[in-house]
Nucleic acid binder design. Structure first.
Lengths: 243, 243
DNA sequence: GGAAAACCAATTGTCTGACAATTAGATTTT
DNA sequence: AAAATCTAATTGTCAGACAATTGGTTTTCC
């Protein structure tokens, strides 16, 4: 690990970057203990609060964990898929909500990426995953469901579809695309008729996956994409009339 | 914003979470100024170093930026696509390197997701993007290129392919999948013969995209995926023999 | 001898108070 | 009116202290 620090940036940012580089380049390996805070103070020639700010930056990215007590300290953390999911979703959600991304754009991305899962999902889907999808379909057909709950169930259904591809890297990559769209979807009011249509398409998807029929699944997914976009356009039309 | 704090966690983590919730839920909006550090001390009833550790956590996620001086302070940051790209790549790279993800899994994810871009890319690719792809192809055919440079150029080519879909959300989502595989690819030694094959396939992809022929592009991409996997398998065989 | 209790040392978590650096705005000077 | 200066607010950094936690060591007691 090198200890070169420029001016210009904050010290804590530079120290965090130096340690981060060490982790990414492999000179600091998983579960290895970092020097104690006082040692880091000496090595970087800064005060303890500054070192601590640097460590907190790394902790915020799940790159390290800390433990108190004798033989405590800061340890390089194994970034778990779960942690990565969470970061992915947080970042994606904020990115979409802060940058005026249109529903069309987000929706197009989501369905295009989901389509990439279908071929694999048709081969590999497990009974559990099919059951999860059917369970969400059942939830979606309950009459008294709020729009929010309907959307949440929709997201859960699509999560199951993505997971059915049996590739954890894809599940992770798509977590953001699938989950971050929920706040946008929540702006849509789903009438009983529209829900019916969505549930019908979901059912066809589950059926096609069960039959391991990738082509049909892709076709139905395309219909679902078109239908979802149409709903969004209706909402946009209503808005522009009343506004 | 609420100021309820449990015990159990560190104070700085709780404060960071409280502010993060405010941002995600929308009660703190972009460019809004947070209270000064001293104000936050009073509101949360903690000392300034603790508040600062919390703010550094948020800064590490690009959720806030800080400015010194009169009328300075911490401001809610608009998460830019560029920032999100960076976080995405960092997280993906670490996730892959720390979790013994096989080359097959990562490669499958990358090509499956890229395939999702092709249909859109064939419609929308701009002359600039085609030129970028051709430039990388040219770079890849230079004889003296190191394996690392060849891989870097390969990544750049695929980045251009993804960007050609003209959907920033997809570009962001796939940044991780495309870039994080580079360290894994770097373990492969590319002989002249193998490079020739890859360059040939890249050229076919660029040609097909220029002709706006999505089907051919998908087919060639599938060949490239198969070829890449074959290379990885050869390396694995060599390893197991010599090891 | 063995088990429980007390103690010790290392380490992180938090606090207090201070000073330096930066910057926008107000004030004064030319 | 323009330029220079001052002022106040705010973050960045430092120094030193104490509290809390935790693993290991020592002592005590049966």
């Amino acid at each position: 690990m090198k200890y070169k620090l420029d001016q210009a940036q904050e010290l804590s940012a530079q120290i965090a970057q130096a340690i981060r580089d060490g982790i990414m380049e492999g000179s600091l390996i998983v579960d290895q203990r970092l020097p104690s805070e006082s040692d880091l103070c000496e090595q970087f020639q800064v005060s303890r609060p500054t070192v601590r700010e640097a460590l907190k930056r790394l902790a915020a990215q799940n790159l390290i964990r800390t433990q108190r007590g004798a033989s405590g300290g800061a340890f390089v953390n194994r970034l778990s898929f779960e942690d990565a999911y969470g970061q992915q979703i947080t970042t994606s959600t904020l990115l979409l909500s802060m940058n005026a991304v249109s529903f069309e754009t987000a929706c197009e991305a989501r369905f295009a990426l989901e389509r990439a899962c279908v071929a694999l999902a048709a081969q590999r889907r497990t009974p559990d995953q099919l059951a999860a999808m059917r369970a969400e379909i059942h939830r979606q057909s309950q009459p008294g469901l709020s729009d929010e709950s309907f959307c949440a169930s929709d997201v859960a259904f699509h999560r199951a579809l993505v997971d059915a591809a049996g590739n954890p890297v894809m599940s992770y990559q798509l977590a953001g695309a699938v989950e971050a769209i929920e706040p946008l979807m929540n702006m849509i009011t789903f009438t009983a008729r529209k829900r019916e249509k969505i549930v019908e398409l979901h059912t066809l998807i589950a059926d096609a996956l069960e039959a391991q029929d990738a082509e049909t699944t892709e076709a139905v997914l395309a219909q679902l994409a078109a239908h979802t976009l149409e709903l969004a356009r209706e909402v946009a039309r209503m808005r522009s009339k009343s506004g």
